[in-house]
């Protein structure tokens, strides 16, 4: 991995610069600048958490589908089986697998999102 600077230091520097110039922008561009800074946050978290998240998701797919494979292939296979109805919400382990995977993804995309699981019972 290249250092001096590391990739996440580059994204951090841009994000800081955006925050610096933001107060001088008109409302529309100030909003877009905040979006842009948030995007750099996603990139940074994906760099940091993405590889482990994908490895964990692949492991879960392997257990659920009961064979080895690459993430993208297993993901496609799962989608096909869900579409065909071979697997459904009642399949043991399915909901748990999907939940763990999308929670890992949410930790990258929007770590502050207060999701339905925090509702405290419907």
């Amino acid at each position: 991995m290249i250092t001096h600077p590391r990739a996440e230091e580059l994204t951090e520097a841009v994000a800081r610069w955006i925050d610096e110039v933001r107060p001088g922008l008109d409302p529309r561009n100030a909003f877009l600048a905040r979006v842009a800074a948030n995007m750099l946050g996603v990139v940074a978290r994906q760099q940091q958490l993405g590889p482990a998240a994908e490895a964990a998701a692949t492991e879960r797919f392997i257990v659920l589908l009961d064979h080895q494979g690459e993430y993208a292939d297993l993901n496609s296979e799962l989608c096909e089986k869900l579409r065909a109805g071979t697997l459904d919400a009642a399949t043991p382990g399915l909901i748990e697998t999907l939940k763990a995977n999308v929670l890992d993804q949410l930790a990258i995309d929007q770590p502050n999102y207060r999701h339905e699981g925090l509702a405290g019972g419907a």
């Binding site: 877009l32 948030n38 995007m39 996603v42 939940k99 999308v102 949410l106 699981g117 419907a122």
Partner: peptide, 25 residues
């Protein structure tokens, strides 16, 4: 061309988490 649009694509996962909890319940 808006910078906002690609970021909204990363909001799909929020709906996936909400859906998985609704399906579980």
């Amino acid at each position: 061309a808006s910078v906002e649009r690609p970021m909204i694509g990363r909001r799909v996962s929020e709906t996936e988490v909400d859906l998985v909890y609704l399906l579980e319940a």
